[in-house]
Design a protein around this nucleic acid. Sequence first.
DNA 1: TTAGATGCAAATCATTTGCAATGAA
DNA 2: TTCATTGCAAATGATTTGCATCTAA
Lengths: 162, 162
Amino acid sequence: MRGYNTSMKLRLSRKQSGKMQGHPMTAQRRLLLELIKQADGHIDARELYRLASIKGELISPATIYRSLNLFKTLGLVDERRLGKMRCYYEIKRPSDHQHMVCNCCGKIIEIESPLIRKLVNKVQNEHGFNVTKVEFYLEGYCEQCSDKETHKVVWKSPKNRR
Amino acid sequence: MRGYNTSMKLRLSRKQSGKMQGHPMTAQRRLLLELIKQADGHIDARELYRLASIKGELISPATIYRSLNLFKTLGLVDERRLGKMRCYYEIKRPSDHQHMVCNCCGKIIEIESPLIRKLVNKVQNEHGFNVTKVEFYLEGYCEQCSDKETHKVVWKSPKNRR
DNA sequence: TTAGATGCAAATCATTTGCAATGAA
DNA sequence: TTCATTGCAAATGATTTGCATCTAA
């Protein structure tokens, strides 16, 4: 029995869809999914908050984390922890791909190789282990940064460590 | 093994060695390294604190973390983050080995395969990326737990999540 | 003697949670 | 209507840091 909010409230509540696998599709969830898609992979909670804010849609951190957890549960997004950094989220894709992060510029490079699948299968058979998640993560210096020879300096920067 | 110490102070300060690559070898550091060695891999800060306490040697968390960081810098230990869990430490070893963790019982299985090195080399060459750290981590269910069919229940337990 | 280490408590940082208010279906 | 979601603020839990006090070399 209340009308639309004119101020900081979410504008894009168009109710463009019904439920989401049994869970209500809210404006916040729609926007978050949207942002994750647009981000083209590798976006974190903080960045989602920032982008939403820029769009004039303030979503509380609690909601962001709760939504991300829901998306994970529903299999809509994948969560990756790259190094000691916070978690990154990306729309779930069928292909196996892993990541490589540059310590210097922070660039994230995706890698894909049949060797990964092969390795997982091998391990799975040898140990009778039922693998549900594969995390192959490489850290180092990308081509450009390897030339700069500024590693040590930047590598120590708190900015890159957390 | 307990109760042989009356005061809370560190007893084993025998100054059994000089410096440690330029850094003073203190009783705390000696004990921590000792514990990490005895742990036979995969021990975390909390467990180190607990084990030290049991021995009657109270080492402050701050010192534990500071020591672990030093050990890492000196290349004495390796730090691994297994899943969302806290970091685990192990004495540095020459061989490449990675880990597989059971979601159900928490067991940590080490895996080793020439495929890993092969994969890293391949990626390195293809992308001109200078790899400094390899983290290959598998999550799933070990042989025993796969049979139990109690996955869902235990899997959700907060105990396993953090 | 003295640079560097320790302990303590307070500070960070990411994430979670309790609860009352709000909103989707 | 009704139950799930949201926002807020407080709680958590791991790790870090400032500072005064110790201690290895």
